[in-house]
């Protein structure tokens, strides 16, 4: 089984988020809680359902990731782009993996 994390988009602003070990939705995949066995995945799925019911997030999905040299990376390109941001330099203030967008 590949490692998994739980991802969603925040209801209020739609920003991509991942669930961390303390049950908070965080903006950085690297802070996400990684489920490495079936029971942990079941716990993730339960958390996802609860979060949707709680109206904190939308579009909740368990996704597959791999850990390489301590860095988490989704297996699918779609999820990598969600985690790392658009692969294009779309506007001044976009910093990609260096951190959140900073208005110029």
């Amino acid at each position: 089984m590949s490692d998994k994390v739980l991802t969603a988009n925040r209801l209020s602003d739609g920003i991509s988020v991942w669930l961390d070990a303390s049950g908070q939705w965080v903006e950085n995949l690297q802070d996400a809680f990684v489920a490495r066995h079936a029971e942990a995945v079941a716990a993730l799925e339960a958390s996802g359902k609860a979060a949707v019911a709680d109206n904190k997030v939308v579009d909740v999905n368990v996704i597959e990731i791999e850990e390489k040299d301590g860095v988490l990376r989704p297996l699918r390109l779609r999820e990598r782009i969600r985690a790392e941001g658009p692969t294009i330099d779309y506007a001044p203030g976009y910093r990609g993996l260096l951190g959140p967008f900073e208005a110029a």
Binding site: D13, G14, S16, G85
Partner: peptide, 15 residues
């Protein structure tokens, strides 16, 4: 369906 009627989609990174 209500947000879509008003042009609001949810995409990969945001609305």
């Amino acid at each position: 369906p209500l947000r879509l009627m008003n042009g609001v989609y949810l995409q990969l990174h945001a609305y």
